[in-house]
């Protein structure tokens, strides 16, 4: 099987986001970049599928600047076979554009199945799976908590959580795009031999500008601002009846929420 994984490099979740001095975007200098945590589930599921189907390969597809190759190498260290990086350096690109260039690679590679994290933890748009699936004319399910390949190898049964603690069980035809959720598996370690082998695995580069063609921006960014800092809280001391009275007064007169 030819298994594709859509991978995104994101800032470490503990990063303190700072804006550039001129307000033109996020200051990237001090950011520690990591593989999007949900994408690790995607890589693991792909590797598990490869292990069960001899002769399969796992291909990592990512869009981003040169540094994004590090994330692909981390997936190599876990065991993925090769990579494709769409270089976005110097290209203004929005969600739709990113989905478009990824889908072009997906169509070109003719993957049997595509895994991706259910969302990227940087912008949390939770939209890429649906966009890529639509632009590639493939079915999709997200988030997926359980995956099993059908006996015919041409379909799969997946579980998707729905409201009220229930689960939808869905039969889906391959090829398809699946958004991976926490709990689907336990991602393996990047092993030391894996890390050493990673540098010998190929990453093919493509140019975002070429794949985009005449497609321009559908979304423009008006500006960047950090959320306002939270005001310090107020502590009311005293006997319960006095405290409640005070609290109601504050909520009514100062916070004006009741």
């Amino acid at each position: 099987m030819k298994i594709g994984v859509l991978l995104k490099q994101v800032p470490d979740t503990e990063t303190k986001i700072k804006l550039k001095a001129d307000g033109s975007g996020i200051e990237e200098n001090e950011i520690k970049w990591v593989v999007n945590p949900y994408d690790e589930y995607a890589v693991e599921e792909a590797l598990k599928l490869r292990e069960k189907n001899a002769g399969s390969e796992v291909v990592i597809v990512t869009a981003g600047p040169a540094r994004a190759a590090e994330a692909t190498r981390q997936a190599f260290a876990m065991g993925a076979d090769r990579g494709i990086r769409i270089d976005t350096t110097g290209v203004s690109i929005d969600l739709y554009g990113t989905a478009l260039i990824l889908s072009k690679v997906v169509l070109e590679e003719k993957f049997d199945i595509i895994f991706a994290g259910k969302q990227a933890v940087d912008d949390d748009c939770t939209a890429m799976i649906q966009f890529v699936a639509e632009l590639s004319s493939l079915p999709h399910v997200s988030p997926v908590e359980k995956f099993e390949l059908g006996a015919d190898g041409k379909s799969a049964t997946v579980e998707r959580p729905v409201a009220g603690g229930m689960k939808e069980v869905i039969d889906i035809e391959l090829p398809c795009v699946l958004g991976c959720e926490k709990g689907l598996n336990t991602p393996r370690y990047a092993s030391l031999p894996g890390i050493m082998k990673a540098k010998t695995k190929p990453i093919v580069e493509k140019k975002a500008a070429e794949l985009l063609g005449s497609e321009g921006l559908r979304v423009t960014t008006a500006g960047w601002a950090l959320p306002p800092e939270r005001a310090t809280g107020k502590k009311i001391d005293g006997e319960p009846n006095v405290v409640v009275e005070q609290l109601v007064k504050f909520l009514r007169e100062e916070a004006k929420v009741i």
Binding site: E70, A77, Y189, A190, S191, L192, I195, A198
Partner: peptide
Amino acid sequence: TEEQKALGATALDF
């Protein structure tokens, strides 16, 4: 190197 840092990252992860 990136590779040496990755070795350290796996050790820490473990």
